[in-house]
Deep mutational scan, measured.
Amino acid sequence: HAATELTPEQAAALKPYDRIVITGRFNAIGDAVSAVSRRADEEGAASFYVVDTSEFGNSGNWRVVADVYKA
């Protein structure tokens, strides 16, 4: 099962156990969220919340930071 994305309210009520950072070329924010979901799932997380997204220069590469939560 894939890790689910939390709302800001849900994330605020929970304590993350880790923070992950992924970088890559994403065509849309949805693609980045899917990549975070896969990584969170690999780490055994039940859910995640994207904290920050930023573009690296003009290369089209993105850096996505997310907190991950157990259950």
Score class of each variant (00 low, 15 high):
48 F>I: 02
18 D>L: 14
6 L>I: 05
20 I>C: 03
14 L>V: 06
6 L>E: 01
63 R>T: 13
30 G>Y: 09
42 E>D: 09
11 A>G: 03
62 W>Q: 04
49 Y>R: 05
18 D>E: 08
49 Y>W: 07
19 R>N: 00
32 A>Q: 03
2 A>K: 14
28 A>C: 13
38 R>S: 07
10 Q>G: 05
40 A>P: 01
15 K>R: 11
21 V>R: 01
31 D>M: 07
5 E>L: 12
60 G>D: 07
53 T>R: 07
6 L>Q: 02
10 Q>D: 06
14 L>Y: 07
15 K>P: 05
36 V>E: 01
32 A>N: 01
59 S>W: 06
45 A>K: 01
19 R>S: 04
69 Y>M: 01
64 V>H: 00
57 G>S: 09
4 T>W: 10
21 V>Y: 08
9 E>I: 09
68 V>D: 02
61 N>K: 10
5 E>D: 02
65 V>W: 04
55 E>Y: 14
68 V>K: 02
49 Y>M: 06
64 V>P: 00
19 R>Y: 06
14 L>M: 13
30 G>K: 13
46 A>V: 12
27 N>C: 05
65 V>K: 02
54 S>T: 14
47 S>Y: 15
38 R>I: 11
1 H>G: 12
4 T>K: 14
16 P>Y: 03
25 R>S: 10
30 G>S: 14
2 A>L: 11
71 A>L: 09
51 V>A: 03
39 R>F: 09
55 E>M: 10
16 P>C: 07
14 L>P: 01
55 E>F: 14
13 A>E: 12
41 D>Q: 15
34 S>H: 14
14 L>S: 09
11 A>H: 04
23 T>Q: 09
30 G>D: 13
28 A>T: 15
4 T>H: 13
71 A>V: 11
64 V>G: 00
43 E>C: 15
24 G>Y: 02
38 R>M: 09
16 P>F: 03
40 A>T: 04
6 L>M: 05
53 T>D: 02
62 W>N: 03
29 I>W: 14
25 R>C: 09
42 E>V: 08
30 G>C: 12
56 F>R: 05
61 N>F: 15
64 V>C: 05
54 S>D: 07
45 A>F: 14
56 F>D: 14
67 D>T: 05
28 A>L: 09
66 A>T: 01
61 N>A: 10
61 N>G: 09
71 A>N: 11
18 D>M: 15
50 V>D: 01
7 T>D: 06
35 A>V: 07
9 E>T: 09
50 V>R: 01
40 A>K: 01
9 E>A: 12
12 A>D: 07
61 N>Q: 14
5 E>K: 08
65 V>A: 04
56 F>H: 09
33 V>M: 13
46 A>L: 10
7 T>N: 08
33 V>A: 05
2 A>V: 11
22 I>C: 06
56 F>I: 15
19 R>D: 00
35 A>M: 08
18 D>K: 15
37 S>G: 15
69 Y>P: 01
29 I>H: 10
59 S>L: 10
18 D>T: 11
49 Y>D: 01
41 D>R: 15
17 Y>Q: 01
5 E>C: 13
25 R>G: 05
43 E>G: 07
59 S>P: 12
66 A>V: 13
67 D>Y: 13
39 R>H: 06
52 D>M: 13
14 L>G: 06
31 D>A: 07
59 S>D: 14
67 D>C: 11
22 I>F: 01
15 K>G: 03
18 D>W: 09
61 N>V: 14
56 F>V: 13
32 A>K: 03
7 T>M: 06
39 R>Q: 08
66 A>C: 07
38 R>G: 04
12 A>Q: 10
27 N>I: 10
15 K>S: 10
24 G>S: 02
38 R>L: 09
29 I>K: 10
47 S>C: 14
16 P>A: 07
60 G>P: 06
